[in-house]
Amino acid sequence: METKKAITSSLEAKERIEKTFAVTAEKHDSLDIRLPIGLITGIYGLILIMLGITDPHASTVLNININLIWGAVMCIFAALFLIAHKLSVNKKT
């Protein structure tokens, strides 16, 4: 009796899964995540560069303008992501 009940519950679960998959037959594109990543890191990079230029001695411990350096690093990073996004858009069209 016990095992019989177990069989039906497993098969019942299988049927329900099939139902969900049947509804989502078509696969579709989604937002390309490289775009928002490129944008936000680019904006942050520019803000840091601006802060680095206006106040080069903000960091008091070490004599490094870390805002300027890291802002530049983030801008390069952002550019790579935006280029990758652009390339994938071109490929599709």
């Binding site: 840091l48 802060l51 680095g52 106040d55 411990v61 870390i66 805002n67």
Partner: peptide, 11 residues
Amino acid sequence: NKYYPVGLIGL
């Protein structure tokens, strides 16, 4: 707190 200036600290 020791190493980050304004800007980087926000990040």
